[in-house]
Nucleic acid binder design. Sequence first.
DNA 1: GCAAAAGTGTTAGGTGTACACCCATGA
DNA 2: TCATGGGTGTACACCTAACACTTTTGC
Lengths: 230, 230
Amino acid sequence: MTQFYLQEDKLYISVDCIILGFKENAINVLIIKRKFEPLKGERSLMGGFVRMNESLDETVSRVISEYTGIEGVYLEQVGAYGDVGRDIGERVVSVVYYALIDMELFDEKLEKKHNAEWINIHNVGKLILDHNRFLDDTLKLMKRRTATRPVGFNLLPEKFTLPQLQSLYEAIYQKSMDKRNFRKKIFEMDILEKLDEKDKSASKRGAYYYKFNKEKYDHRLEDGFYFSFI
Amino acid sequence: MTQFYLQEDKLYISVDCIILGFKENAINVLIIKRKFEPLKGERSLMGGFVRMNESLDETVSRVISEYTGIEGVYLEQVGAYGDVGRDIGERVVSVVYYALIDMELFDEKLEKKHNAEWINIHNVGKLILDHNRFLDDTLKLMKRRTATRPVGFNLLPEKFTLPQLQSLYEAIYQKSMDKRNFRKKIFEMDILEKLDEKDKSASKRGAYYYKFNKEKYDHRLEDGFYFSFI
DNA sequence: GCAAAAGTGTTAGGTGTACACCCATGA
DNA sequence: TCATGGGTGTACACCTAACACTTTTGC
Protein backbone atom coordinates (compact mmCIF):
# COMPACT_ATOMS: atom_id res chain seq x y z
CA MET A 1 0.00 0.00 0.00
CA THR A 2 2.80 2.36 0.85
CA GLN A 3 4.04 1.72 -2.67
CA PHE A 4 1.20 3.79 -3.96
CA TYR A 5 2.52 6.96 -2.41
CA LEU A 6 6.20 6.44 -3.02
CA GLN A 7 6.47 8.47 -6.16
CA GLU A 8 4.86 11.54 -4.58
CA ASP A 9 6.63 14.54 -3.05
CA LYS A 10 6.82 15.23 0.65
CA LEU A 11 6.75 18.80 1.91
CA TYR A 12 7.32 20.69 5.11
CA ILE A 13 4.12 21.69 6.88
CA SER A 14 4.11 24.37 9.52
CA VAL A 15 1.43 25.82 11.70
CA ASP A 16 1.28 29.55 12.32
CA CYS A 17 -0.70 30.91 15.23
CA ILE A 18 -2.39 34.21 15.69
CA ILE A 19 -2.87 34.66 19.39
CA LEU A 20 -5.42 37.30 20.25
CA GLY A 21 -6.10 38.88 23.61
CA PHE A 22 -8.19 41.77 24.92
CA LYS A 23 -6.74 44.46 27.15
CA GLU A 24 -7.44 48.13 27.76
CA ASN A 25 -10.34 48.15 25.33
CA ALA A 26 -8.28 46.85 22.42
CA ILE A 27 -7.68 43.57 20.68
CA ASN A 28 -4.01 42.71 20.77
CA VAL A 29 -1.99 40.12 18.94
CA LEU A 30 1.14 38.45 20.21
CA ILE A 31 4.09 39.08 17.91
CA ILE A 32 7.70 37.97 18.24
CA LYS A 33 10.93 39.42 16.99
CA ARG A 34 12.86 36.53 15.51
CA LYS A 35 16.03 35.75 17.37
CA PHE A 36 17.73 33.84 14.58
CA GLU A 37 18.24 33.69 10.87
CA PRO A 38 16.56 33.68 8.46
CA LEU A 39 14.92 37.07 8.89
CA LYS A 40 16.47 37.66 12.31
CA GLY A 41 15.06 40.69 14.09
CA GLU A 42 11.97 40.92 11.94
CA ARG A 43 8.48 40.59 13.31
CA SER A 44 6.64 37.36 12.94
CA LEU A 45 3.78 35.22 14.13
CA MET A 46 4.50 32.19 16.24
CA GLY A 47 4.89 28.96 14.35
CA GLY A 48 6.11 25.42 14.45
CA PHE A 49 6.61 22.52 12.12
CA VAL A 50 4.14 19.68 12.08
CA ARG A 51 5.87 16.49 13.19
CA MET A 52 5.28 13.07 11.73
CA ASN A 53 3.35 11.80 14.73
CA GLU A 54 1.51 14.95 15.61
CA SER A 55 -1.88 16.11 14.37
CA LEU A 56 -2.32 19.71 13.27
CA ASP A 57 -4.32 20.37 16.42
CA GLU A 58 -1.51 19.01 18.53
CA THR A 59 1.02 21.22 16.79
CA VAL A 60 -1.09 24.31 17.42
CA SER A 61 -1.62 23.47 21.06
CA ARG A 62 2.09 22.87 21.49
CA VAL A 63 2.96 26.24 19.96
CA ILE A 64 0.31 28.15 21.89
CA SER A 65 1.35 26.60 25.14
CA GLU A 66 5.01 27.31 24.42
CA TYR A 67 4.38 31.01 23.89
CA THR A 68 1.62 31.73 26.38
CA GLY A 69 1.78 29.00 29.01
CA ILE A 70 -1.94 28.36 28.49
CA GLU A 71 -3.60 25.05 27.61
CA GLY A 72 -7.04 24.37 26.20
CA VAL A 73 -7.68 27.71 24.54
CA TYR A 74 -10.32 28.47 21.93
CA LEU A 75 -8.88 27.68 18.50
CA GLU A 76 -10.11 27.97 14.97
CA GLN A 77 -8.43 27.13 11.74
CA VAL A 78 -8.14 29.98 9.27
CA GLY A 79 -6.85 27.97 6.35
CA ALA A 80 -3.92 26.42 4.55
CA TYR A 81 -1.52 28.58 2.57
CA GLY A 82 0.56 26.82 0.01
CA ASP A 83 2.00 29.09 -2.64
CA VAL A 84 5.30 27.76 -3.87
CA GLY A 85 7.35 30.81 -3.01
CA ARG A 86 5.62 31.83 0.21
CA ASP A 87 8.51 30.83 2.44
CA ILE A 88 12.03 31.76 1.52
CA GLY A 89 14.49 29.03 0.72
CA GLU A 90 12.31 25.99 1.23
CA ARG A 91 8.82 24.98 0.22
CA VAL A 92 6.60 25.11 3.29
CA VAL A 93 2.84 24.80 3.40
CA SER A 94 1.45 26.66 6.38
CA VAL A 95 -1.80 26.00 8.19
CA VAL A 96 -2.97 29.07 10.08
CA TYR A 97 -4.97 29.07 13.30
CA TYR A 98 -6.10 31.82 15.58
CA ALA A 99 -6.55 31.52 19.31
CA LEU A 100 -8.63 33.65 21.66
CA ILE A 101 -7.10 33.82 25.10
CA ASP A 102 -7.78 35.45 28.41
CA MET A 103 -4.78 37.73 28.83
CA GLU A 104 -4.98 37.42 32.59
CA LEU A 105 -3.78 33.84 32.22
CA PHE A 106 -0.82 34.79 30.05
CA ASP A 107 2.54 33.87 31.55
CA GLU A 108 4.47 37.13 31.33
CA LYS A 109 7.82 35.47 31.86
CA LEU A 110 7.43 34.02 28.37
CA GLU A 111 7.20 37.48 26.93
CA LYS A 112 10.89 38.18 27.49
CA LYS A 113 11.97 34.63 26.85
CA HIS A 114 10.59 34.72 23.32
CA ASN A 115 11.16 38.34 22.55
CA ALA A 116 7.43 38.72 22.25
CA GLU A 117 5.05 41.62 22.64
CA TRP A 118 1.36 42.32 22.52
CA ILE A 119 0.46 44.76 19.77
CA ASN A 120 -2.86 46.42 19.06
CA ILE A 121 -4.21 44.70 15.96
CA HIS A 122 -4.52 48.06 14.24
CA ASN A 123 -0.87 48.95 14.73
CA VAL A 124 0.79 45.76 13.62
CA GLY A 125 3.33 46.83 11.05
CA LYS A 126 5.08 44.72 8.48
CA LEU A 127 5.48 41.07 9.39
CA ILE A 128 7.67 38.51 7.65
CA LEU A 129 6.60 36.52 4.61
CA ASP A 130 2.83 36.38 4.13
CA HIS A 131 2.05 36.80 7.81
CA ASN A 132 0.19 40.07 7.27
CA ARG A 133 -2.17 38.24 4.99
CA PHE A 134 -2.70 35.58 7.67
CA LEU A 135 -3.59 38.32 10.10
CA ASP A 136 -5.99 40.05 7.72
CA ASP A 137 -7.78 36.82 6.92
CA THR A 138 -7.92 35.97 10.61
CA LEU A 139 -9.53 39.25 11.56
CA LYS A 140 -12.22 38.90 8.92
CA LEU A 141 -12.98 35.38 10.07
CA MET A 142 -12.90 36.27 13.74
CA LYS A 143 -15.35 39.12 13.22
CA ARG A 144 -17.78 36.85 11.46
CA ARG A 145 -17.39 34.18 14.09
CA THR A 146 -17.81 36.44 17.11
CA ALA A 147 -20.90 37.91 15.46
CA THR A 148 -22.66 34.58 15.15
CA ARG A 149 -21.26 32.43 17.93
CA PRO A 150 -20.70 33.20 21.57
CA VAL A 151 -16.94 32.85 21.35
CA GLY A 152 -15.98 36.39 22.33
CA PHE A 153 -16.19 35.29 25.96
CA ASN A 154 -12.92 33.46 25.45
CA LEU A 155 -11.19 36.84 25.40
CA LEU A 156 -12.52 37.75 28.82
CA PRO A 157 -11.94 36.32 32.27
CA GLU A 158 -14.51 33.82 33.46
CA LYS A 159 -16.28 36.59 35.34
CA PHE A 160 -16.84 39.81 33.44
CA THR A 161 -19.09 42.85 33.55
CA LEU A 162 -21.47 44.04 30.85
CA PRO A 163 -19.47 47.24 30.24
CA GLN A 164 -16.44 45.00 29.66
CA LEU A 165 -18.35 42.76 27.28
CA GLN A 166 -19.66 45.73 25.37
CA SER A 167 -16.26 47.31 25.09
CA LEU A 168 -14.95 43.99 23.77
CA TYR A 169 -17.51 43.98 20.98
CA GLU A 170 -16.85 47.62 20.28
CA ALA A 171 -13.16 46.79 19.90
CA ILE A 172 -13.92 43.90 17.57
CA TYR A 173 -16.30 45.78 15.29
CA GLN A 174 -14.63 49.14 15.65
CA LYS A 175 -17.78 50.99 16.36
CA SER A 176 -19.52 52.21 19.44
CA MET A 177 -22.80 50.68 20.42
CA ASP A 178 -25.78 51.84 22.37
CA LYS A 179 -25.68 50.59 25.93
CA ARG A 180 -29.38 49.90 26.17
CA ASN A 181 -29.65 48.08 22.88
CA PHE A 182 -26.58 46.03 23.62
CA ARG A 183 -27.86 44.90 26.98
CA LYS A 184 -31.29 44.16 25.62
CA LYS A 185 -29.84 41.91 22.94
CA ILE A 186 -27.56 40.08 25.35
CA PHE A 187 -30.31 39.52 27.87
CA GLU A 188 -32.72 38.25 25.25
CA MET A 189 -30.20 35.58 24.33
CA ASP A 190 -30.46 34.36 27.87
CA ILE A 191 -26.99 32.85 27.98
CA LEU A 192 -25.49 34.83 30.85
CA GLU A 193 -25.64 34.12 34.52
CA LYS A 194 -25.66 37.12 36.82
CA LEU A 195 -23.46 36.85 39.90
CA ASP A 196 -23.97 38.62 43.20
CA GLU A 197 -20.52 40.10 43.06
CA LYS A 198 -19.57 43.50 41.68
CA ASP A 199 -16.47 44.81 40.01
CA LYS A 200 -15.63 48.14 41.58
CA SER A 201 -12.36 48.73 39.79
CA ALA A 202 -13.88 50.93 37.13
CA SER A 203 -16.51 52.85 39.04
CA LYS A 204 -17.68 53.66 42.50
CA ARG A 205 -21.04 52.13 41.99
CA GLY A 206 -19.59 48.94 40.60
CA ALA A 207 -20.86 46.70 37.81
CA TYR A 208 -22.27 43.24 38.35
CA TYR A 209 -20.21 40.29 37.24
CA TYR A 210 -21.68 37.80 34.81
CA LYS A 211 -20.63 34.36 33.62
CA PHE A 212 -21.27 32.75 30.27
CA ASN A 213 -23.65 29.85 30.84
CA LYS A 214 -22.73 27.17 28.32
CA GLU A 215 -25.51 24.79 29.34
CA LYS A 216 -28.17 27.40 28.66
CA TYR A 217 -26.59 28.21 25.32
CA ASP A 218 -26.37 24.58 24.20
CA HIS A 219 -29.95 24.07 25.23
CA ARG A 220 -31.19 27.05 23.25
CA LEU A 221 -29.29 25.94 20.16
CA GLU A 222 -31.35 22.77 20.04
CA ASP A 223 -34.57 24.49 19.11
CA GLY A 224 -33.24 26.28 16.05
CA PHE A 225 -32.21 29.37 17.95
CA TYR A 226 -30.23 31.71 15.78
CA PHE A 227 -27.54 33.74 17.35
CA SER A 228 -26.50 37.25 16.42
CA PHE A 229 -24.42 39.84 18.13
CA ILE A 230 -24.22 43.19 16.35
CA MET B 1 19.26 29.01 5.49
CA THR B 2 18.05 25.65 4.35
CA GLN B 3 19.98 24.24 7.30
CA PHE B 4 17.34 25.63 9.58
CA TYR B 5 14.68 23.28 8.31
CA LEU B 6 16.78 20.15 7.93
CA GLN B 7 15.83 18.52 11.18
CA GLU B 8 12.11 18.82 10.54
CA ASP B 9 9.76 16.17 9.15
CA LYS B 10 8.33 16.26 5.66
CA LEU B 11 4.84 14.94 5.03
CA TYR B 12 2.62 14.08 2.11
CA ILE B 13 0.03 16.72 1.35
CA SER B 14 -2.98 15.96 -0.76
CA VAL B 15 -5.87 18.01 -1.99
CA ASP B 16 -9.37 16.58 -1.98
CA CYS B 17 -12.07 18.20 -4.09
CA ILE B 18 -15.78 18.29 -3.62
CA ILE B 19 -17.27 19.10 -6.98
CA LEU B 20 -20.84 20.32 -6.78
CA GLY B 21 -23.31 20.73 -9.60
CA PHE B 22 -27.01 21.53 -9.91
CA LYS B 23 -29.35 19.41 -12.02
CA GLU B 24 -33.03 18.52 -11.88
CA ASN B 25 -33.61 20.69 -8.82
CA ALA B 26 -30.94 18.97 -6.76
CA ILE B 27 -27.38 19.61 -5.71
CA ASN B 28 -25.17 16.77 -6.83
CA VAL B 29 -21.64 15.83 -5.94
CA LEU B 30 -19.20 14.02 -8.17
CA ILE B 31 -18.02 10.76 -6.59
CA ILE B 32 -15.66 8.12 -7.96
CA LYS B 33 -15.36 4.44 -7.33
CA ARG B 34 -11.66 3.79 -6.80
CA LYS B 35 -10.14 1.61 -9.49
CA PHE B 36 -7.07 0.57 -7.54
CA GLU B 37 -5.83 -0.39 -4.13
CA PRO B 38 -5.94 0.69 -1.41
CA LEU B 39 -9.70 0.70 -0.91
CA LYS B 40 -10.41 -0.40 -4.48
CA GLY B 41 -14.10 -0.23 -5.38
CA GLU B 42 -15.03 2.08 -2.54
CA ARG B 43 -16.48 5.50 -3.04
CA SER B 44 -14.28 8.51 -2.71
CA LEU B 45 -13.81 12.16 -3.46
CA MET B 46 -11.35 13.21 -6.12
CA GLY B 47 -7.89 14.00 -4.89
CA GLY B 48 -4.30 14.48 -5.84
CA PHE B 49 -0.98 14.97 -4.16
CA VAL B 50 0.56 18.39 -3.96
CA ARG B 51 3.80 18.46 -5.91
CA MET B 52 6.95 20.26 -4.89
CA ASN B 53 6.56 22.98 -7.50
CA GLU B 54 2.83 23.36 -7.41
CA SER B 55 0.74 25.64 -5.21
CA LEU B 56 -2.35 24.26 -3.51
CA ASP B 57 -4.50 26.21 -5.95
CA GLU B 58 -2.67 24.65 -8.86
CA THR B 59 -3.19 21.19 -7.47
CA VAL B 60 -6.92 21.78 -7.10
CA SER B 61 -7.26 23.18 -10.58
CA ARG B 62 -5.37 20.24 -11.99
CA VAL B 63 -7.62 17.75 -10.23
CA ILE B 64 -10.84 19.55 -11.13
CA SER B 65 -9.83 19.83 -14.74
CA GLU B 66 -8.83 16.18 -14.83
CA TYR B 67 -12.23 15.02 -13.61
CA THR B 68 -14.57 17.54 -15.21
CA GLY B 69 -12.74 19.01 -18.19
CA ILE B 70 -13.53 22.50 -16.87
CA GLU B 71 -11.06 25.29 -16.11
CA GLY B 72 -11.49 28.41 -14.03
CA VAL B 73 -14.28 27.24 -11.79
CA TYR B 74 -15.38 28.82 -8.52
CA LEU B 75 -13.29 27.35 -5.70
CA GLU B 76 -13.19 27.77 -1.99
CA GLN B 77 -10.99 26.14 0.58
CA VAL B 78 -12.80 24.24 3.30
CA GLY B 79 -9.79 23.54 5.48
CA ALA B 80 -6.81 21.37 6.26
CA TYR B 81 -7.30 17.98 7.90
CA GLY B 82 -4.28 16.52 9.58
CA ASP B 83 -5.07 13.85 12.13
CA VAL B 84 -2.25 11.36 12.30
CA GLY B 85 -4.32 8.31 11.42
CA ARG B 86 -6.70 9.87 8.94
CA ASP B 87 -5.23 8.13 5.90
CA ILE B 88 -4.40 4.46 6.06
CA GLY B 89 -0.81 3.37 5.86
CA GLU B 90 0.87 6.73 5.43
CA ARG B 91 0.62 10.09 7.09
CA VAL B 92 -1.12 12.47 4.71
CA VAL B 93 -2.39 15.95 5.48
CA SER B 94 -5.32 16.80 3.23
CA VAL B 95 -6.49 20.23 2.19
CA VAL B 96 -10.11 20.21 1.13
CA TYR B 97 -11.70 22.47 -1.47
CA TYR B 98 -15.14 22.60 -2.97
CA ALA B 99 -15.95 23.72 -6.47
CA LEU B 100 -19.22 24.99 -7.89
CA ILE B 101 -19.60 24.10 -11.53
CA ASP B 102 -22.11 24.52 -14.28
CA MET B 103 -23.03 20.93 -15.08
CA GLU B 104 -23.73 21.84 -18.69
CA LEU B 105 -20.00 22.30 -19.15
CA PHE B 106 -19.14 18.91 -17.67
CA ASP B 107 -17.35 16.60 -20.06
CA GLU B 108 -19.41 13.42 -19.83
CA LYS B 109 -16.72 11.28 -21.41
CA LEU B 110 -14.75 11.70 -18.19
CA GLU B 111 -17.58 10.14 -16.22
CA LYS B 112 -16.83 6.67 -17.56
CA LYS B 113 -13.11 7.18 -17.75
CA HIS B 114 -12.87 7.82 -14.03
CA ASN B 115 -15.65 5.58 -12.87
CA ALA B 116 -17.41 8.66 -11.62
CA GLU B 117 -21.02 9.53 -10.99
CA TRP B 118 -23.10 12.46 -9.86
CA ILE B 119 -24.95 11.75 -6.67
CA ASN B 120 -27.58 13.83 -4.92
CA ILE B 121 -25.85 15.29 -1.87
CA HIS B 122 -28.54 13.82 0.36
CA ASN B 123 -27.98 10.29 -0.88
CA VAL B 124 -24.21 10.05 -0.71
CA GLY B 125 -23.52 6.92 1.29
CA LYS B 126 -20.34 5.90 3.03
CA LEU B 127 -17.18 7.32 1.54
CA ILE B 128 -13.61 6.26 2.29
CA LEU B 129 -11.53 7.60 5.16
CA ASP B 130 -12.82 10.92 6.53
CA HIS B 131 -14.40 12.01 3.25
CA ASN B 132 -17.90 12.09 4.72
CA ARG B 133 -16.67 14.65 7.19
CA PHE B 134 -15.19 16.71 4.36
CA LEU B 135 -18.55 16.66 2.65
CA ASP B 136 -20.48 17.64 5.79
CA ASP B 137 -18.12 20.52 6.49
CA THR B 138 -18.34 21.61 2.88
CA LEU B 139 -22.12 21.71 2.85
CA LYS B 140 -22.24 23.84 5.98
CA LEU B 141 -19.71 26.24 4.54
CA MET B 142 -21.35 26.35 1.14
CA LYS B 143 -24.73 27.15 2.68
CA ARG B 144 -23.28 30.03 4.62
CA ARG B 145 -21.40 31.29 1.60
CA THR B 146 -24.28 31.14 -0.85
CA ALA B 147 -26.44 32.93 1.73
CA THR B 148 -24.12 35.91 1.97
CA ARG B 149 -22.31 36.06 -1.36
CA PRO B 150 -23.65 35.82 -4.87
CA VAL B 151 -21.78 32.62 -5.65
CA GLY B 152 -24.76 30.37 -6.31
CA PHE B 153 -24.74 31.63 -9.89
CA ASN B 154 -21.69 29.46 -10.49
CA LEU B 155 -23.97 26.44 -10.36
CA LEU B 156 -26.14 27.77 -13.18
CA PRO B 157 -25.46 28.46 -16.82
CA GLU B 158 -24.56 32.01 -17.67
CA LYS B 159 -28.17 32.67 -18.65
CA PHE B 160 -30.78 31.41 -16.21
CA THR B 161 -34.39 32.09 -15.32
CA LEU B 162 -35.75 33.20 -11.97
CA PRO B 163 -37.64 29.94 -11.42
CA GLN B 164 -34.32 28.15 -11.96
CA LEU B 165 -32.53 30.45 -9.52
CA GLN B 166 -35.22 29.97 -6.93
CA SER B 167 -35.19 26.23 -7.28
CA LEU B 168 -31.42 26.33 -6.83
CA TYR B 169 -31.76 28.14 -3.52
CA GLU B 170 -34.56 25.83 -2.48
CA ALA B 171 -32.27 22.89 -3.15
CA ILE B 172 -29.43 24.44 -1.16
CA TYR B 173 -31.50 25.37 1.88
CA GLN B 174 -33.88 22.45 1.63
CA LYS B 175 -36.97 24.55 2.01
CA SER B 176 -39.48 26.04 -0.32
CA MET B 177 -39.66 29.77 -0.67
CA ASP B 178 -42.37 32.21 -1.62
CA LYS B 179 -42.05 33.24 -5.24
CA ARG B 180 -42.97 36.87 -4.64
CA ASN B 181 -40.68 37.33 -1.68
CA PHE B 182 -37.82 35.63 -3.46
CA ARG B 183 -38.13 37.85 -6.50
CA LYS B 184 -38.51 40.96 -4.40
CA LYS B 185 -35.30 40.20 -2.56
CA ILE B 186 -33.36 39.42 -5.71
CA PHE B 187 -34.57 42.53 -7.51
CA GLU B 188 -33.77 44.75 -4.57
CA MET B 189 -30.20 43.57 -4.73
CA ASP B 190 -30.07 44.91 -8.23
CA ILE B 191 -27.39 42.54 -9.43
CA LEU B 192 -29.22 40.83 -12.28
CA GLU B 193 -29.53 41.87 -15.86
CA LYS B 194 -32.73 40.93 -17.62
CA LEU B 195 -32.35 39.61 -21.16
CA ASP B 196 -34.90 39.82 -23.95
CA GLU B 197 -34.77 36.11 -24.47
CA LYS B 198 -37.06 33.54 -22.89
CA ASP B 199 -36.60 29.95 -21.87
CA LYS B 200 -39.59 28.00 -23.13
CA SER B 201 -38.38 24.57 -22.15
CA ALA B 202 -40.32 24.48 -18.91
CA SER B 203 -43.52 26.29 -19.84
CA LYS B 204 -45.48 27.57 -22.77
CA ARG B 205 -45.34 31.13 -21.65
CA GLY B 206 -41.62 30.99 -21.10
CA ALA B 207 -39.50 32.62 -18.40
CA TYR B 208 -37.14 35.47 -19.07
CA TYR B 209 -33.45 34.80 -18.95
CA TYR B 210 -31.25 36.81 -16.60
CA LYS B 211 -27.52 37.21 -16.22
CA PHE B 212 -25.54 37.95 -13.08
CA ASN B 213 -24.07 41.43 -13.44
CA LYS B 214 -20.73 41.40 -11.67
CA GLU B 215 -19.99 45.07 -12.29
CA LYS B 216 -23.20 46.13 -10.59
CA TYR B 217 -22.46 43.83 -7.69
CA ASP B 218 -18.90 45.07 -7.19
CA HIS B 219 -20.14 48.61 -7.35
CA ARG B 220 -22.78 48.05 -4.71
CA LEU B 221 -20.29 46.39 -2.41
CA GLU B 222 -18.29 49.59 -2.24
CA ASP B 223 -20.85 51.49 -0.28
CA GLY B 224 -21.20 49.00 2.55
CA PHE B 225 -23.98 47.06 0.91
CA TYR B 226 -24.73 43.91 2.86
CA PHE B 227 -25.84 40.92 0.97
CA SER B 228 -28.30 38.29 2.12
CA PHE B 229 -30.17 35.59 0.33
CA ILE B 230 -32.63 33.66 2.50
C1' DG C 1 -22.60 67.21 47.22
C1' DC C 2 -20.54 65.99 43.15
C1' DA C 3 -18.20 63.43 39.67
C1' DA C 4 -18.27 59.19 37.16
C1' DA C 5 -19.84 55.07 35.59
C1' DA C 6 -23.99 51.68 35.87
C1' DG C 7 -28.32 50.82 34.86
C1' DT C 8 -33.07 51.27 32.73
C1' DG C 9 -38.01 51.84 28.40
C1' DT C 10 -40.24 53.67 24.62
C1' DT C 11 -41.12 54.83 19.93
C1' DA C 12 -40.72 55.14 14.91
C1' DG C 13 -39.17 53.22 10.84
C1' DG C 14 -37.78 49.48 8.28
C1' DT C 15 -37.58 44.57 7.15
C1' DG C 16 -39.36 39.84 6.75
C1' DT C 17 -43.32 37.02 5.93
C1' DA C 18 -47.67 35.42 4.70
C1' DC C 19 -50.93 35.30 1.26
C1' DA C 20 -54.11 34.86 -4.04
C1' DC C 21 -54.90 36.09 -8.41
C1' DC C 22 -54.09 37.21 -13.44
C1' DC C 23 -51.12 36.36 -17.66
C1' DA C 24 -49.17 34.17 -21.72
C1' DT C 25 -48.95 30.38 -24.62
C1' DG C 26 -48.87 25.71 -26.93
C1' DA C 27 -51.41 21.91 -27.50
C1' DT D 1 -60.35 26.55 -24.32
C1' DC D 2 -57.77 24.77 -21.00
C1' DA D 3 -53.81 23.31 -18.49
C1' DT D 4 -49.39 24.84 -17.00
C1' DG D 5 -45.99 27.43 -15.20
C1' DG D 6 -44.68 32.76 -15.09
C1' DG D 7 -45.38 36.85 -13.13
C1' DT D 8 -47.19 40.55 -9.81
C1' DG D 9 -48.72 43.76 -4.70
C1' DT D 10 -50.31 44.39 -0.01
C1' DA D 11 -50.92 44.15 5.05
C1' DC D 12 -49.32 42.81 9.38
C1' DA D 13 -45.90 41.35 12.75
C1' DC D 14 -41.52 41.77 14.28
C1' DC D 15 -37.05 43.57 14.85
C1' DT D 16 -33.64 47.32 14.80
C1' DA D 17 -32.04 51.72 15.99
C1' DA D 18 -32.36 56.08 18.06
C1' DC D 19 -32.77 58.49 22.10
C1' DA D 20 -32.13 60.78 28.01
C1' DC D 21 -32.53 60.36 32.53
C1' DT D 22 -31.96 58.17 37.28
C1' DT D 23 -29.08 55.46 40.51
C1' DT D 24 -25.14 54.40 43.28
C1' DT D 25 -21.19 55.49 45.83
C1' DG D 26 -16.35 56.93 46.99
C1' DC D 27 -14.11 60.97 47.53
